[in-house]
Amino acid sequence: MAQRCDRAEFLLSWQPYFLFESAPDEGMPFVEWMRNVAGEEAAGKAQRREGTLFELCDEMGLNLDADRRLGNTVYSHCLVDYAGKISPAVQTELVEVLFEGNLANGELISDINFLLRCAEKVNIDKEGALAHMQNAEIQQQIIAAYKQTVQEIGVPKLPFTIMTSNRNPELKLAFSGDMPPSTMAAIFDKLLDSSTET
Rank of each mutant, 00 (worst) to 15 (best):
S176R: 08
D58R: 12
N63V: 05
R48D: 12
A43P: 02
P88F: 07
E21Q: 14
C57T: 11
A185N: 06
R69Y: 04
I143S: 01
P156G: 09
T164L: 06
A185W: 01
S13T: 13
R167Y: 10
A119K: 04
L98S: 09
G61F: 09
A66E: 03
P88D: 08
L116E: 02
F160D: 03
E93G: 04
L56W: 07
L116S: 02
E41C: 08
S195N: 03
I112M: 15
K45I: 04
P181A: 13
Q148E: 02
Q140S: 14
P159T: 07
N168H: 13
G154Y: 09
L171V: 15
P88H: 07
F114M: 10
V31M: 03
Q148I: 02
F188N: 10
G154A: 07
N63M: 06
M60Y: 05
L56N: 09
L11F: 09
S87A: 03
E59I: 06
A66N: 05
G61D: 03
N102W: 03
G177P: 00
I162T: 12
L173I: 15
A89D: 11
Q47G: 12
V155G: 02
D25S: 10
A174L: 06
T73K: 09
R48A: 15
A104W: 01
F99C: 07
G128Q: 05
S176E: 15
E152A: 07
A43R: 00
A186R: 14
Q47T: 14
E197K: 05
Q139G: 14
Q47L: 14
Q3I: 06
L103G: 06
A131Y: 09
M133A: 00
L158I: 14
S182D: 10
M28V: 15
R35I: 02
